[in-house]
Simulated scan of single mutants.
Amino acid sequence: MFFQRSNASKDSVKRFLMQVLAQDCNTVPQAFSTDALIVCEAGLTPGRRRFPFRDPYFLMVTCGTGTVVSTVAPRIAVVRRMLEGLHRDEIFSGKGMHLLSELVGLDGQFLAGPDLKFSCSQQDFTPCKPPRGLRMEVLQNSAIHQLYQTDGFRHALRYSEHSSRPDTIAVAGYLDNDLIGVAGACADTDDLWQIGVDVLPGIQAKGVGKALVSELTQKVLKVGKIPYYSTSIANLHSRNLAHALGYFSVWTEIYAVAEKKLEPVTRLGRY
């Protein structure tokens, strides 16, 4: 599954993302354009995003119409019975979350999200000017590893030289030669790269994060890849940043993780 750079419009990006989501959920792209509840059996499908397959698996996605749930076989009938008759908005609100939390809690899991997922196309991208005094440096592949020596940018960097989702491009921001922020892209699939950003406390809300994401988005699009990032529904600053750069909403997801390992979900661009 490859993305055709020559068709880098919003519609073509969305079509491509539906294919990726179909691989994530082990279903077909058409499942995300219906207004029905679809529950399917999860599987390690080629082309899925390279996140760990957390067993027992649970991923729930909506692209604004119906709801697609991907989970392990023993849960399928239970999920259908729990959610039958509920509207998408009910499923993704407190009522649905309560029911599903009880289900995954039986296996020592909890629900993360809802996360809003955004993407951008070449035609929609709106770059911004960096704030005065900000110097940006672009690093690629193994050159990014030098940034691992400085902790505090774990929303933007994988901090691993052997990750299944390797860091591919990073933009480091400097003020008076001090590293104050990093935006990084990791390869969730060969053609879908996730963007994350970190800015030091006290520097936030000054346009630094927006400038770093703008520069990184431009680089990702230039090499023919699709950028995307996620934010929690409560992170209004992140959503506003996305829209200002031409990002558009594509899907919302909820997923189950183990109680013993809580991974941040409110950051920009990373699980």
Rank of each mutant, 00 (worst) to 15 (best):
S70H: 09
T217N: 05
G152A: 06
G105N: 06
T150L: 05
V69K: 11
F3V: 12
D124L: 10
S93L: 01
R50T: 06
V68H: 02
I180M: 10
V138M: 13
R270Q: 13
F53S: 07
A42E: 10
S93M: 05
S119Y: 00
V39H: 10
L134I: 08
D191W: 07
T67Q: 03
A172R: 06
Q218Y: 01
D191Y: 11
S232L: 02
K261M: 06
A112S: 15
L268N: 08
S249N: 09
R154V: 08
V138H: 08
P127V: 04
T62Y: 00
Y159C: 09
F3P: 07
C25W: 02
V265K: 04
V197S: 00
L44T: 12
P114D: 03
T266P: 00
R48D: 03
E41W: 04
F16I: 02
Q194Y: 00
Q140K: 14
K206D: 01
A170P: 03
S93I: 00
R154W: 12
T27I: 07
R81D: 14
S6W: 00
L221G: 02
R5P: 02
F32A: 06
Y271N: 09
A187E: 14
D167A: 11
D190M: 03
C128T: 15
G246W: 08
V197R: 02
V182R: 10
K222I: 01
Q146H: 08
S142V: 13
V78D: 11
L100D: 05
Q149H: 09
V78K: 14
C40F: 01
V265G: 11
T34H: 15
T189F: 03
S33T: 14
D89V: 07
K225D: 02
D167W: 08
G184T: 07
S238T: 10
Q218V: 00
V257M: 11
Y148R: 13
C128I: 13
R132F: 03
P56N: 08
Q194D: 09
Q146E: 12
C40Q: 11
S6I: 11
P74A: 05
P264S: 12
P264M: 04
A156Y: 11
G181K: 12
H243G: 01
D191I: 00
L221N: 00
L241I: 13
R88S: 07
N235C: 04
I76Q: 12
T71F: 11
L200K: 15
G43L: 01
A183P: 04
R54V: 13
T126M: 13
V69Y: 10
T126Q: 15
C40L: 00
I169G: 13
V208A: 06
S164A: 10
Y148D: 11
V39W: 09
V69S: 05
G43F: 00
P131S: 04
M60E: 05
Q4H: 11
E259A: 05
V199M: 08
A244N: 14
L44G: 00
D24P: 11
S249E: 12
R270G: 08
V220K: 06
R158V: 10
L134S: 05
L106W: 01
L37W: 09
S232F: 02
H243P: 01
I169F: 06
D11I: 06
R88I: 03
L17G: 01
S119G: 04
E253N: 15
T27Q: 12
S214Q: 03
I169D: 09
R135Y: 02
I144C: 08
V78W: 00
